[in-house]
Amino acid sequence: MLEIHGRAVKYGDDVNTDVIIPGKYLTSTDPKELAEHAMEGLDPSFTEKVKDMNIIVAGRNFGCGSSREQAPLALKYSGVKCILAENFARIFFRNAINISLPVLESKGISENVDERDELRVNLSAGVVENLSKKEVLQVTPLPDFLLEILDQGLIEYVKHRRTS
């Protein structure tokens, strides 16, 4: 979980939750069903692309809009391993951590990564290695308590805190 390896699929600024998963599909609570429609509003070929490009690299304000946890769920179950963006909308950011989908604020990532670049991400160190370009980007790592929630998922984290 703390180290992720994959290829980049790139998107721009302000990718909103309505294009990640449109409202009409939210009557389902099944993550696999949601995943079939991931990014439908923005990129109809996403579910194909993510098969070999499973690290999303995006610009500013990724996940803006609604509080729907179905958005990070749809991405996670479609095969996304990690999202690197200049910054994230705050509810999306918290939701992603809570369901164990790694997200890392990575200033400068859009300029330094091209689609299909091979990346290795170390979440606890805040290091993004671009293996294709042989470059290293150092970003601020997540604080320890968020790494812990990310690692366990909020459900297990809460269970554990209540029983310990």
């Binding site: 918290r94 809570n98 308590f145 809460v158």
Partner: peptide, 18 residues
């Protein structure tokens, strides 16, 4: 402020949030 569903479940359980 807005939060997601699993976080809401944790609030229902504990009455607190970070």
């Amino acid at each position: 402020t807005g939060i997601g569903s699993t976080e809401m479940a944790s609030v229902w359980l504990t009455g607190k949030l970070w």
